[in-house]
Design a protein around this nucleic acid. Sequence first.
RNA 1: GCCCACGUAGCUCAGUCGGUAGAGCACACCCUUGGUAAGGGUGUGGUCAUGGGUUCAAUUCCCAUCGUGGGCUCCA
Length: 607
Amino acid sequence: MEVIMSQQPEERYEDTLLYRIRHSAAHVMAQAVLDFYPGARYTIGPPVENGFYYDFELPEPIKEDDLEKIEKRMRQIIAGGHPFVKKVLSADEARQVFKEQPYKLELIEGLEQGGFDEYGNPLEEKPEISIYQHDSFTDLCRGPHVESTRQINPSAVKLMSIAGAYWRGDEHNPMLTRIYGTAWSTSKELEEYLHMLEEAKARDHRKLGKELEIFFYEDEVGPGLPLWLPRGAVIIDELEALAKEMEDKAGYVRVRTPHLTKEDLFVRSGHLPYYAESMYPPMEIEGIKYYVKPMNCPMHHKIFSSKPRSYRDLPVRLAEYGTCYRYEKSGELFGLMRVRSMQMNDAHIYCSEDQFEQEFMGVIDLYKKYFDLFGIGKYSMRFSLHGKAGLGKKYVDNERLWLKTEEMVRRAMQNGGVPFVEAQDEAAFYGPKIDVQIWSAIGKEFTLATNQVDFAVPERFDLVFMNRDGVEETPLCIHRAPLSTHERMIGFLIEHYAGAFPVWLSPEHVRVIPITDNQNAYGAAIVAQLREQGIRASVDISSQRMNAKIREAQLMKVPYMLVVGENEASAGMVSLRVRDGSRQDNIPLAEFITRARERISTRSAQL
RNA sequence: GCCCACGUAGCUCAGUCGGUAGAGCACACCCUUGGUAAGGGUGUGGUCAUGGGUUCAAUUCCCAUCGUGGGCUCCA
């Protein structure tokens, strides 16, 4: 299992030639843009993964079609072989250079005070102020750059897209125009990159989800509210069966809770004070406000407190595949990965402090089992901590407990030997968490699974258990969702498997393909036998030729095709064609059933 | 929510520099009954996202709304 962690790579990206090429290409692009839009104000233009961008405030809107001419101008500039010249300046000198560039003046201010670097990141030390100049373009910049524009390969640079971006990433600031570009050492690398993007599109869950009839969206239903088709519902059922099986073994019990709750509950839980932005507005019935739940925890807390608990009862592990609704801004929605209605693989573990480590790591173990099963190798465990500035706003205001629980988590993870990266200001409002970060086919990062500590809410709910000494004690609560939500998990799995699910997860295990209509009845009989054995099967009795039927089954990525013609029917056999193209002709149905049942029951990755 | 782009048949897409639209697949019917990724023919199907405006005339131009996409912000 490959774990992406706080690795010490041989060479930091910042130190590579490619980084300098991209950084320099950003400057060249800025020059080209300024040539076309002399009134433009320019801000920052750093290298990023696979390329670079530059943010501008433009006097007029720019169109995708304009990228071509900018690219052309860039090539001219590159061909000029202009050296990149660095100059260190005083703040006042810098202000003189950029006197007509308000964004640059703001950056100089930050540099002078030592608070921020040119990208707005906080800095420890007061940096030197430098500019880089090439041809007619001068930028406030700490570098590094290539020596000459000639070191940028003009046939390995491409402008990709235009996007909006807030100045300094703050939505209260003006919206700038961002131009993304990509740059490589050779045109071959560029081509490979573009090819990779094409391939990523092919496994995009939004495309495959439609083609494989897993889910869809309907305008009249609403954005972010997916409709699961029968094939998608099968996957959901399989995941739930898996979760139940694993959770049963791990000592969870299942509960069920309503989708709606009175306002008071969410006031008590802290959702309304801290999480209201993500909640749907209330509805009023008989003078009482009700909210659709964004999380299941408050109800689970009520179940915990529904009777007196002894330390002997702990840990109590309440599990529910609860359906939650969150208001996500329209522009944030993304296929199945970011939705407004979601079903969470939720559970709350109530435990004493001395049980915490074991319980917390028990959840991490569960992750690992799932990830092994799915063959998920590329992920990162992110330890999400609170941010001091958010205390009392997005985080429960109790710094002492934040620090204490964060230390508990850190220690548990270290003792368990699980690698992780720490992330400031990413916690839940009620406590720190371990998030499992994954990447969608097109490279967006998402939190898949999550394991969260809650030190705040049990107290708000007066949750207690009687300890050994006969004294009431507040339990800790662990919120966890190893299988994420059905939406995000299945979105991820579609991409992970490129739609070719392992047999157990395949919406259709077997497609029976009669060669002629004469075998339709035989095919139907086989389907009946397969279903009897718990195998999901259907028979294709369309008027198409066998070749077309096979093609269709292949396109739907059905793992097993059973071709039955005259020979099979008369001998009571089947001919197996596996999704990978391999074949076993004229085998007894029972032999196939044994194979299929073995693959399904063991949730095998093998076909 | 913000910036930009897009929205034509169930799906994937052409097209109209303003004169009410076309292909392939899918679907229906007919012919074909065919051994491992598309047999042939005929036909059905669109108020060109929705609502306004300009115009003799709007699917095409303009505005608004809804939705989708690329980003930003935000997140399971």
